[in-house]
Amino acid sequence: MSAPETKEMICISCPISCRMTVYEENDSIVVKGNKCARGKVYGEEEYLAPKRMVTCTVATDSEEFPRLPVRTTASIPKETIDELLQELYSLNIKLPVKRGTTLIENYHDTGVDVIATMTLPGRA
């Protein structure tokens, strides 16, 4: 991890949206401004290794349904998102495909897959 720094963030665990200050002190993470325990968990993760879900579309071989929506099965490290997007944009999926079909398995050993989120028919 990078040098200790202080990060300002808004907790997104619930609609209250606590404004939090998170920093490192004596080898532990300090979260301030949170009103509940979920805020602390969010603050720690967002401080150490922020992760995001990725939702996107990939090309298909169909004219009627040219794009297949996809998503990651869990959050992935923020810094890997751009590379994943590039990989997704280079795919071309042959239809038909069923919702839940794994398109990329265990992306970069993160344990996260990319799956189809729509069932699309093949050529009629």
Binding site: T55, C56, T57, P69, V70, R71, R99, T117, M118, T119
Partner: peptide, 25 residues
């Protein structure tokens, strides 16, 4: 829902976080 490919659907109805098309399906 079919164009809402982002996640955040289904937490109330299905107790899991789905994209729009998954929720619709």
């Amino acid at each position: 829902l079919m164009q809402c490919i982002h996640n955040g659907f289904g937490v109330q109805e299905f107790k899991k976080e789905l994209s729009g098309p998954e929720f619709a399906e």
